[in-house]
Design a protein around this nucleic acid. Structure first.
Lengths: 255, 255
DNA sequence: CGGCGCATGTGGTCGGACCACAGAACCGGC
DNA sequence: GCCGGTTCTGTGGTCCGACCACATGCGCCG
């Protein structure tokens, strides 16, 4: 049994186009900032219809590798860009909603990633980022803050720390994972018995976290953020992210 | 400065369609295994052309939440599925090739994720997975194994451990991150001065790792895999371009 | 010389047509 | 009555041609 069987190469046209463009990217011939030829030119060059080409471009667009602008001028047309965050966020959100990942899995991933984020931030977070984080924490400490606004600021706080850790990849992953459970956290906060007390408790943790990061206590910050996340997730319940509908994402799963 | 400005909501038709379908997923109305109406029916219902609908479906397909099959019968049509791995892999590969992430970032992410994988595997990896891992390690120990085959087996080994750790999300992330640097590792192995010795050294680590996992020594396995990964990445060089050679799909079986 | 409008080029959308494929239904022979 | 092959039907996949919206840039006209 040397090598497992591979699914035969599907040859849908737009996939071939996609592969062709991908190869140019891998080969370094297409780099961020470069512009693709106009669709009406590129399609016949590749030997496909404009529709097929457009579907391939759409794929690249959703991956965050391409943006397209109509009009005329230096900014018009299809340009190669680097914007993975939106794509990754949408991917994880959808799959979490579909039940590809259990809440427990997401919790563990968050713990692992954010521990790394805070350790990294304690080492080399620029002061201006920490100042901005301070503002976010202050915003969350506003008395009478709404659950939704708190959730927004909390998300931005964690994402900001991740970004300031100096690692773009873990930052993106952290952000996407945090976003994917955002609706659940929102529901949990809304269901909190004593919301002001909950907010105060979370804020105390945020302040301590920030202090630890400022003084460079990476391991301590990592431990605290793990406790912070586990505590919050303990109040979450697994369920459809939407407002209605019974549970039971126990459908048959993909291999 | 209450809230930052947000880019105005683009209203490209296919994005609206996408949003509409996404909402159904978030609301739990569309679940894995469900089938969408045929394109020719759905398009007029949504009030868009078939092309616009198809572009939205293509997006969902690249995200890994949809598959489409022509023909007739229970398996035909567009079905909701859960297959995030391919999508995530393609996303990270492209962005790594574009330089969205530095090699150092990927290294750190690998360390963080795989530490978690091995710790999880030490706790609850099923024996059959470990047996399969044993086979992979044995395959890598074959004398005279080629660099490419070794790289294949090595990838499968790390991905298998990740999967057996019981966390689908970190498993997917681990796999995608490992895949994204696969071409670089391949080049590094090819450039190794004494390849057989290198292979022997890596294999010794693999065997020790597997032993540690079997006996449930999670932290020790985590430390060792960190050392294992850092050692290998230390030999990598940040290649401006990527994976495959100048042209061609360079079949993975090239001797 | 300056302002205004049209020509141009871009992506975005649409409708229709045809193709390939695979199950389903049908019909014939046995 | 059963089995076989043939035809029908419905699905996604592709292609074509046309038009739309928009932003730029040029040229015309005042």
């Amino acid at each position: 049994m040397p090598v497992e069987w591979q699914p035969v190469q599907q040859s849908r046209t737009h996939e071939l186009v996609l592969r062709s463009i991908e190869e140019r990217v891998f080969a370094g011939e297409l780099r961020a900032g470069d512009r693709l030829p106009p669709e009406r030119e590129l399609a016949p060059v590749l030997g496909v219809s404009r529709s097929a080409l457009r579907e391939a471009l759409r794929v690249l667009e959703t991956i965050g590798v391409l943006v397209a602008q109509p009009g005329r001028g230096p900014d018009a047309g299809a340009r190669i860009v680097r914007n993975p965050d939106d794509a990754l966020g949408r991917l994880l959100r959808l799959h979490f909603a579909l039940g590809s990942y259990s809440l427990h899995d997401v919790l563990e991933a968050r713990v692992v990633l954010e521990r790394s984020s805070f350790e990294g931030a304690a080492c080399h977070a620029p002061d201006e980022d920490l100042d901005e984080a301070e503002e976010l924490v202050a915003g969350m400490a506003e008395p009478g803050i709404g659950v939704s606004a708190f959730n927004d600021l909390d998300t931005r706080f964690h994402v900001l720390i991740a970004r300031s850790s100096g690692n773009a990849l873990t930052s993106t992953l952290t952000s996407a994972v945090r976003e994917s459970v955002r609706p659940l956290i929102l529901r949990a906060l809304e269901a909190a018995e004593d919301w002001p007390a909950t907010a105060r408790a979370l804020n105390a943790e945020h302040r301590t976290l920030l202090t630890l990061v400022r003084e460079g206590s990476g391991p301590e910050a990592a431990d605290l953020v793990e406790w912070h996340i586990r505590g919050l997730h303990g109040t979450l319940v697994e369920g459809p992210t939407g407002p209605t509908g019974p549970t039971g994402p126990t459908g048959p799963t993909a291999p």
